[in-house]
Structure formats: C-alpha cells, structure tokens
Design a protein around this nucleic acid. Structure first.
Length: 276
DNA sequence: ATCCAGGGTGGAG
DNA sequence: CTCCACCCTGGA
C-alpha cells in the first residue's frame, strides 16, 4: 500500500466519505462508525470510535485487504498494456472499496455533471440535516427510509438541483420494495443491473458505479467522460459508442475490468499521460 | 458581467 | 444513435 494509492482510493471519487486529517491520515464514516486510518512508512494503522466500533474483520473487508486483491491486480493485462501499466505502477495499492450499497446509490445519483467536491458537499448536507450525529462535524447517512419522508422541494434546497427528483423517486421506489437493494447486492450482474436501471436517475454509468463500489462486482466497468477520454486518446477508440467501449473493456481488461477502470480513471485525473 | 462545464439521464426526433 | 434540457454553483 502506497501513500498515493491509499489517498486515491479514499479521496479519488469512488467514495465521498473520507477526509484527509493530516498528510498521512484520513477520517471517514462507514455506516455509523467513524474510522481513522494512518499510513506511516508503508504500515497501515487504524482506530475507531467506541460508540459505534468497526471491527477489524469488517475493515479488512471494506479495504479489500485479502489475497484476492493481489490476484485481481495480477489478472489485469498490464504485461501487454503500457497505458494501464503506467497507471498501476504510479498508484500501487489502489483498490476498490467495499462500501454499503445504499450510500453508494445516493452519491452516484447525485454525481451527474458534478465534480468530486460538489458531490461530497451535497452528501454532507444530507447527512447533516437528516443523519445521526456521530462526532463533531460528522453525521451518518440517514438511510433511504428516512429520505422517503422528505419532500422533493426540501431536497432541492440542499444544492441538488434536478437530482432532487431522482433522490425522491428512488426513495419512494425503495419504500415500495424495501428488499430491493439487498437483492441487487446478491443477484447476478445482469439482473442486478437491470433492477438498478429501473430506478429514476439511474442509467448505465450510475448502475455500474453502484455494482462496482457497492456490491464488489469488479467486472462492472462504468464509462464516464474521463474513461471515455482515455479510451479515445490512448486506445484509439475515438468515435466508438459507449456500448462498443464497454464491450472492448470487458474483452480487453477481463473479469476485473472495474479495477482497471479505477487505475485508468485516477491516471487520467492525475494527468499521468501528459507528455513530459 | 456573462458564459461554461462539472463521474449523466430521460425523452424526443 | 444523436441532441438537448435539466438545477445550481464556482471559476474563467
């Protein structure tokens, strides 16, 4: 685990629950637990609040700290793909977090045409207003049952804009079918994705983000503007439709294409491919 | 001051 | 498949 790899994992746009507290420590909320991570000389340590403790076993799962991570990394085509290899070498230890599906769905519902700081702000406004206070300046995600009680207009005041309609609509659908998100996490990829696509404001990109970040489906390959740009600039896929690019991704990157996506996304974001 | 784009989606042509 | 409105905010 490298400093840049962990920093990108926590702050690079797959989670909006973490904040840097010092140069090498980060504080985040998982469910109702507050967790602080610290990385000193390649060694990861952590502590958790005592009111809502987060077990070590759960944290290891959240951070994908089991041998299947190394296997997934090795399965990527870095041997034959210099673009991917450059990203992987620059971001050692970058990984996919195993986050709670309900929170992931909210933040990516809010993500359309928004930057990372803006998404984080909207999420924090929701938590602050409707969530449970955990620490000074930290609140939990309120849950979809709570969000279902809130009028759309009230959500609009939280800087959501037209996304308020999506949040309200999704909350109502989940209220009608409370087991839906659990099913999405458990079902095979195709069925789960179809179920997510039935929700208002959830298109292919958001659905794949939910499956990748909230259900450990590392084959899910969300295609956003950054990835599309990478595929155009460095793989010669200019003019390809999103479907064509998705097909390429699955064939080229394999069953953990979503992990490749995260390396490429961060690489593009950090400008790794700018010519020196 | 205006203009524009920021991890898209839904609806129409 | 392509085009564009959708809300709002911050930076050029």
């Amino acid at each position: 685990m490298s400093h840049i790899g962990l920093e990108e994992t926590l702050l690079g746009g797959q989670s909006f629950s973490w904040t840097a507290t010092t140069e090498s420590s980060w504080k985040g909320v998982i469910g109702k637990s507050v967790v602080e991570l610290r990385l000193t000389k390649d060694r990861l340590t952590w502590r958790t609040g005592k009111k809502h403790p987060f077990a070590e076993k759960k944290l290891r799962n959240y951070l994908w700290l089991d041998p299947s991570f190394a296997e997934a990394v090795d399965s990527l085509p870095w041997r034959s793909d210099p673009v991917l290899d450059r990203c992987m070498k620059a971001l050692p230890g970058l990984r996919i977090l195993r986050q709670p599906m309900d929170e992931v769905l909210l933040v990516f519902l809010l993500s359309s045409v928004k930057s990372i700081p803006q998404i984080k702000e909207m999420k924090e406004l929701v938590a602050r207003k409707y969530g449970e206070p955990l620490e000074l300046d930290l609140w939990s995600f309120p849950g979809w049952e709570r969000l279902a009680e809130i009028p759309e207009a009230e959500l609009r005041d939280l800087k959501m804009g037209y996304r308020a309609k999506y949040v309200h609509g999704v909350a109502r659908q989940i209220a009608i079918n409370p087991s839906m998100l659990r099913e999405v996490v458990e079902q095979p990829y195709e069925e789960a994705k179809a179920k997510l696509l039935g929700l208002p404001g959830v298109g292919p990109k958001v659905a794949d983000c939910c499956l990748l970040f909230g259900a450990s489906r590392t084959n899910a390959f969300p295609i956003d503007t950054w990835i599309s740009k990478t595929l155009e600039m460095h793989y010669g896929l200019g003019g390809w439709s999103n479907n064509q690019q998705a097909h390429f991704a699955f064939k080229h990157y394999g069953k953990h294409a979503g992990l490749a996506q995260q390396f490429l996304f961060s690489g593009e974001r950090l400008g790794l491919h700018e010519k020196a």
